[in-house]
């Protein structure tokens, strides 16, 4: 078959054809992968909630201060804990941390969901802060790095990532438990009351 000449009609026809083909291919793939993508995202979220909370059976999801909040209950409806997805701007862009609180408002764990921090430096946050956070209790002040006069060890050579991480945790704390009722909004205070009922 001879190559089509570079005159207006063949060019137009060929480009239209290529675009139609591309459109078909893409809409087909989008249709086929749509459910799988939604399911994968849901699964990943569930996996993170499971990892940061004690065992639970039921989950209720809503938003507080713009952050997704998952409240967990046992089969009998007993309150187990809350997981909050807190997003902040790190060194390499925004990242999201899922923070878990048990019914005593202690931090039970965290998972970094999405991040673009420097591999080998900021990326160490995925397990760097486990011990410091396990010791945190609602009576403590907002978390701060040792450098900033607090108690938490920053990741060596990644202060920006560490500060962002602490900010994410503090945001989650603010949304889930209120450590200083006098500075809190009515909404968060109510949240606390609701959890203890």
């Amino acid at each position: 078959m001879k190559k089509l000449p570079s005159t207006i009609w063949p060019m137009l026809a060929s480009l239209t054809g290529v675009c139609l083909l591309a459109g078909l291919l893409l809409s087909g793939t989008y249709y086929l992968t749509g459910d799988a993508i939604a399911e994968t995202e849901k699964k990943q979220q569930e996996k993170a909630v499971k990892a940061v909370l004690p065992k639970y059976k039921k989950l209720e999801t809503d938003t507080v201060n713009g952050m997704p909040r998952h409240k967990a209950f046992t089969r009998k409806g007993e309150y187990v804990g809350t997981a909050i997805e807190s997003t902040v701007n790190g060194f390499g862009g925004p990242f999201t941390v899922m923070v878990g609180f048990n019914s005593d408002n202690k931090i039970t764990g965290y998972q970094v969901l999405k991040h673009q921090e420097t591999p080998g430096l900021g990326s160490k946050m995925t397990d760097w802060f486990v011990e410091d956070l396990a010791q945190w209790s609602p009576e403590g002040h907002p978390l701060k790095l040792k450098k900033d006069g607090g108690t938490v060890n920053a990741i060596t050579a990644a202060t920006i990532s560490s500060r962002a991480f602490i900010l994410a945790i503090n945001q989650a704390i603010g949304a889930c438990v209120d450590t200083r009722p006098d500075t809190a909004t009515g909404a968060t205070a109510k949240t606390k009351g609701g959890q203890h009922e």
Binding site: M1, L4, S6, S14, L15, V18, L21, A22, T29
Partner: peptide
């Protein structure tokens, strides 16, 4: 290749490549 005239081959190729990348 024979259905794409020479003058528009770059845009046509880019559309094809971009489609597969999106897939």
């Amino acid at each position: 290749k024979n259905l794409i005239p020479d003058k528009v081959h770059i845009p046509a190729y880019i559309v094809i490549i971009a489609s597969f990348v999106t897939v």
